[in-house]
Write a protein that binds this DNA or RNA. Structure first.
Lengths: 202, 202
DNA sequence: TGACGCTAAGACTGGTCGGTCTTATTGTTG
DNA sequence: CAACAATAAGACCGACCAGTCTTAGCGTCA
């Protein structure tokens, strides 16, 4: 059945996000999932690489559900949503004791140069992530300066978060991530229209 | 002689910066350096890990000389130096076709969680890097707002550059790095004193 | 010339890896 | 019960790795 494949992908996602792709062996995944032999694994996946692609896909779906969903909450002001998303990233880093970093960033570092297939799939992940941020910023457009470049801002936010994760990971000090996230919020705040837009009646 | 050890470290630095630590075998290093056998290698280095530490050290010395030296040029205004440093990072990324990223960032991702020895040495690297940035910002203090937090700014700059390298690496598009670097410069510019400080005569 | 000590080179060891192949077990149909 | 199909499990293969051990070749000194 297909949910056995799903089960394998889940186990592999855990392992790969924790230890990286190269440091996770197919045997490890089999053992962790514990419901098929090696030959059977290669019935579900043409190769280990194929498993890696499935993991990228799966992890992004998790992220879209657990992380990016904050950006979609229609009951909250868009710029407030953005702040909450940034706070959630900081909180998540604190929760895992500054270890692990961003699974997508990790895989970029590990695989992007050597493996075009991974690079493309990861590029798609970041594109979609940036797309969600752009949607929020677009909603917040009336509050933003006319010259605010939304696509650019979205990429800047991602880059800064990724860098913040890296810095707090190496220092193992979440206050670094907090400070960087704080500065990022100030950067975003600086893109707000100085005089708030006034809605004009008919 | 000791310069044979140096030669090995140089070869290993090339290989490890290009392919990562785990993906570089001791045999690869031997072959690349081409001037000693394996047993001899283990005379110079207690283990592969030890070689890795030497590579971190060596690569940082290169970086301090080639990259960070821009920050020390006494003939240039400090904030101008900072801009030039950022430009140099972008140019370097363009030169290597958006591949490779930052060797220190790569090693953090690869090793920091699993290997305390690497984590500590890499933390030192980032500390020194941040230290150089702080020196520049300190020099620029008269031009900066009174509430500018210099240590925080230094870390923010590093984080943003690291994130920019990652983004342009996955998209293989240096314009992303350029845009992020541009926003970073705007962030720094926003920390300038609004009314320039006036030197008061006696 | 001959005996000895030192070093460089790479063969070797035990282990891991991705991926395949064989075998055992189960279920199904007459 | 018997013959066969489908599937599961893990033994196995060649390649590679970090680290050690053996050996062959060199210079040195008598």
């Amino acid at each position: 059945m297909n949910d056995r494949r799903t089960r394998i992908v889940e186990a592999a996602t855990d392992l790969i996000c924790r230890n990286g792709f190269q440091q996770t062996s197919v045997d490890d995944v089999i053992r962790e999932a514990g419901l098929c032999g090696k030959a059977h694994f290669y019935h579900y996946f043409k190769s280990k690489e194929e498993l890696g692609y499935a993991v990228v896909q799966h992890r992004f779906e998790q992220f879209a559900e657990e992380g990016l969903s904050i950006l979609r909450d229609p009951m909250v002001d868009p710029l407030e949503r953005l702040d909450r998303f940034i706070d959630a990233e900081v909180a998540s880093q604190a929760e895992q004791d500054c270890r692990g970093g961003c699974p997508f960033g990790n895989l970029v570092t590990e695989m992007a140069d050597a493996h075009e297939g991974f690079r493309q799939r990861l590029a798609t992940v970041f594109e979609r992530w940036a797309g969600q941020l752009q949607s929020v910023l677009w909603e917040a457009r009336p509050q933003l300066r006319d010259d605010a470049d939304i696509a650019r801002m979205a990429r800047f936010i991602i880059a800064t978060l990724e860098g913040g994760l890296l810095m707090s990971r190496v220092t193992r000090d979440v206050t670094h991530m907090e400070a960087i996230a704080g500065d990022l919020k100030r950067f975003i705040a600086a893109q707000r229209r100085e005089t708030p837009a006034v809605s004009v009646g008919p």
